[in-house]
Design a protein around this nucleic acid. Structure first.
Length: 566
RNA sequence: GCGCCUGUAGCUCAGGGGAUAGAGCAUCGGACUUCUAAUCCGAGAGCCGCAGGUUCGAAUCCUGCCAGGCGCGCCA
């Protein structure tokens, strides 16, 4: 049994849980009295009504029960309300509309929120929901033969924030970037680099037909020249191999640096070559063969992925004896599983959606459940400049790289813009707006709220006014409408973090940050702080200090900085 | 042809069974002798792509259609 002693409600999550328990016990009493005849209780959900006149929380339970119970919704609602135990934290309970039960809570629960924020600081909103489950989040994994593009950038921002959300929700998370450094593409890359290297002294040296045209390879060639390597004494094959490994290492280094500049740090950069060196591909084929999912046909070896619902079986060893990329990918995922991760999440671009079936099949063929692997598909990004779409052609070597994006709009705006839309949304990224440092830009709007609070606290400090502890101020003075709204929003953070994690929806946090900033700005214009009487001033300082903590918290989740001055 | 995503205010997007459908931008009108006007307050603006169905209740779920984006290799 839940104890109702004291008023321990301190977030919307807790409030909803407690109200649901109250309704459940009311229903039990009604059923015991024989007033209601239903076989089993449905789940009781509390929602926060859009309209404030509908209370702090509302339940539709009476409407849901109307049919199975064969009674009118309002009649059921009345019985429930009559049987709800009186609680100190409930001001009143109304029945409204077709049969909604609306709960109006005493403001005390909001003051408890401030106490909790003061106690937990930047941990406020965290939970142990994940119970330490080991999750491996793989994202970006861009080919190392070229610079990272705008979709990679979106994946980086979203993947990184998802990782932060999983951590906040009590999971053990590791992030990985898978480097395809073993395929045909890297060989073409090696040839391209060697050709550019030769062209420095011999402009007529041929460039491979299928070579990579970008200028970055020319830059790499000049860097290679300055390295004074033993390249010229090698055979042709050795030269290509050297260019490949040296060049890929340089590409990976620069990708790693670009991502660090974007506030994205991977726990591990996993090289495909490690799998080959460890004979992991041979091993995975052996395992799948033993399990009976490999067969030979048309001179190749196939993985029977259709056994688990895939559209067609997949070639795993080509008729020329080499492996397909799927083979390495299965080996990589098996490696993840062997390392003890019980949940694998891959964040991929929309061109990879056909990949879901075969990889889920592979995981199952290896003896794991289908939902061990979760593949999130990210939709494309269209870049706009001055309202016009920026055309990008990879073949012509024209595309905006992550590095260029950061130079143009900055890390904070870029992160926010990528995260503010749901994964499913085909994002229109407005470069002009993102680069603008004005009120039209939501990033600055949120950061400005944080900087404003810091400024007030600085001003107060200059007048020797310190921010007191929550328990030393008169919280009941915080009763202005904008103050109540602000505290309600603070109360929502734990729920928001949890839902953002469960729904894999980082955009919810971006929106929450914007809403909180908006409520603060509104409060700021309606309520003074430093000029007010001491008691009210101190209470308000506590309030804005809590708002500041939560703003810093959500900005950190987004990977955006929380400036103290602007 | 098959698969995935999308279609909501002039624009970009939230909401994904519940009460009068929301936000930002844009437009229009107001607010600075005091803590940052990078702000606030207010107004107008919508057959929620179309047509059926399920439901006490559908923007939300199901079916079909229309439109846009992206896939459907022994490429990665």
């Amino acid at each position: 049994m839940v104890s109702w002693e004291g008023c321990n409600v301190m977030s919307t999550l807790v409030a909803q849980k407690q109200l649901a328990a109250l309704i459940a016990s009311a229903l039990e009493q009604i059923i015991d009295q024989g007033m209601l005849n239903i076989s089993d209780l449905p789940e009781i959900n509390l929602e926060i009504p859009r309209d404030k006149s509908h209370g702090d929380f509302a339940s539709n339970i009476a409407l849901v029960l109307a049919k199975p119970a064969g009674k009118k919704p309002r009649e059921i609602a009345e019985m429930i309300v009559e049987n709800i135990d009186d609680q100190k934290f409930i001001d009143k309970v109304d029945i409204a509309g077709p049969g909604f039960i609306n709960f109006f809570l005493s403001d005390q629960w909001l003051y408890n929120v401030l106490e909790r924020i003061e106690a937990e600081k930047l941990d406020y909103g965290s939970s142990n929901f994940g119970a330490g489950e080991k999750v491996l989040l793989e994202f970006v994994s861009a080919n190392p033969v070229g610079p990272m593009n705008i979709v990679n950038a979106r994946a980086a921002a979203i993947g990184d924030t998802l990782a932060r959300l999983f951590k906040a929700s009590g999971y053990f998370v590791a992030t990985e970037y898978y480097v395809n450094d073993a395929g045909v593409q890297t060989e073409i890359f090696g040839k391209s680099l060697l050709s550019r290297y030769r062209q420095i002294n011999n402009p007529d040296y041929p460039f491979p037909d299928d070579g990579y045209p970008g200028d970055y390879i020319v830059d790499l060639a000049h860097e290679l020249l300055n390295q004074n390597t033993a390249l010229d004494w090698m055979t042709e094959d050795e030269q290509i191999e050297f260019c490949r490994t040296w060049g890929i290492d340089r590409m990976v280094d620069s990708q790693r640096q670009d991502l660090l500049d974007f506030n994205v740090k991977f726990d591990r950069w996993f090289r495909e070559r490690e799998l080959h060196q460890a004979k992991a591909l041979e091993n995975i084929i052996k395992i799948l063969t033993e399990r009976g999912y490999i067969y030979e046909a048309e001179g190749a070896k196939w993985f029977r992925s259709t056994a688990f619902g895939d559209d067609k079986d997949r070639v795993i060893i080509k008729n020329d004896g080499t492996y397909t990329y799927v083979t390495a990918d299965i080996a990589y995922h098996y490696d993840k599983l062997k390392r003890g991760f019980t949940k694998l999440i891959d964040l991929l671009g929309p061109d990879h959606h056909g990949y879901i079936g075969r990889m889920k099949a592979a995981v199952q063929a290896l003896g794991y459940s289908e939902d061990t692997l979760e593949i999130l598909i990210l939709q494309y990004v269209a870049l706009l400049r001055d309202g016009q779409q920026v055309k990008m052609s990879k073949r012509a070597g024209e595309f905006i790289t992550l590095k260029e994006l950061l130079a143009e709009v900055g890390k904070d705006a870029a992160r926010y813009f990528f995260i503010m839309r749901s994964l499913d949304s085909h994002l229109d990224f407005d470069l002009t707006l993102a680069a603008e440092q004005s009120s039209e830009n939501p990033v600055y709007y949120i950061q400005y709220a944080h900087a404003r609070i810091c400024s007030i606290i600085r001003q107060a400090g200059a007048q020797s006014i310190a921010v007191k502890s929550v328990k030393d101020v008169s919280l009941q003075l915080l009763n202005h409408e904008t103050e109540i709204d602000l505290m309600k929003k603070l109360a929502e953070l734990p729920e928001e973090i949890l839902l953002s994690t469960i729904e894999r929806a980082p955009h919810r946090i971006a929106r929450y940050a914007l809403d909180l900033a908006s409520l603060f700005h509104s409060f700021y214009t309606h309520c003074y702080i430093i000029g007010e009487k001491e008691e009210l001033r101190d209470a308000r300082l506590v309030l804005i200090s809590c708002v500041r903590i939560v703003l810093e918290r959500v900005l950190t989740l987004l990977g955006v900085s929380a400036p103290e001055r602007m």
